[in-house]
């Protein structure tokens, strides 16, 4: 989990509590590493779409491993077979482990049956990032979209996952929405299981 607060300092090793407490990674260290990841990928691509795809691929590898790890650790050895079950698993369990808190909201798309949205007021990976004007709609949240796609694909819920900025009135920074569009086979299976 990427930590938001500072860890308490102990002058004496004997003062440290025995319990491990929260296993947190320094947010600054993560931001630096993520910055390097973006910069490295920038040197390897010609356009924004390709850069987003590379970030998504990096996230995908994380997502597939996170799913395996959390299902062993958190889910009491139960397989997720329902759509809302896996979405709430991503929205709560996965988000909490990765970002230290549950995602701000999980909504169903109003226009399409197969679309769901996870919204974050300030996505952790975007915290110290401001996009240059010439990069248009580029969103580093593509990395998180990749993580979500990795979790869903490997759990048997193939989907196209994208990250978008949504401007909010009266606020300088837009909120980030992770848009999940499930494959037809997922909806058909869900309908069959609902009977």
């Amino acid at each position: 989990m990427i930590g938001v607060g500072k860890m308490k300092q102990y002058s004496n090793v004997l003062d440290k509590p025995l319990s491990k407490g929260k296993q947190e990674v320094s947010l600054t260290a993560f931001a630096f590493l993520f910055s390097e990841l973006v910069q490295y990928n920038q040197t390897q691509v010609d356009n924004i779409a390709e850069l987003e795809r590379r970030l998504e691929d990096a996230g995908y590898a994380v997502g597939s491993r996170v799913l395996e790890l959390l299902c062993n650790r958190e889910k009491g050895n139960r397989r997720e077979t329902r759509l809302l079950g896996i979405l709430s698993f991503v929205h709560s369990t996965v988000w909490k482990v990765l970002f230290g808190k549950v995602a701000d909201s999980l909504e169903k798309g109003t226009e399409h049956e197969d679309e769901y949205m996870i919204s974050e007021k300030e996505l952790l990976v975007n915290r110290f990032i401001s996009i240059p004007k010439d990069m248009g709609t580029f969103n580093c949240g593509a990395f998180v979209a990749g993580i979500v796609k990795g979790v869903l694909d490997n759990a048997g819920f193939p989907a196209v996952v994208t990250a978008h900025f949504v401007p909010i009135e009266g606020q300088q920074r837009p909120r980030t929405t992770i848009l999940i569009k499930f494959a037809d086979e997922v909806l058909k299976r869900e309908a069959r299981l609902s009977q």
């Binding site: 597939s64 799913l67 395996e68 299902c71 062993n72 889910k75 050895n77 139960r78 397989r79 997720e80 077979t81 490997n154 759990a155 048997g156």
Partner: peptide, 25 residues
Amino acid sequence: LNEAFLGLLYPTVNYKVYGYLTNTK
């Protein structure tokens, strides 16, 4: 439906076979 442990899959004369299915299939 969503139990990872599948239990005894089938017995043979000499063996018993057990299965377990993870979330990643």
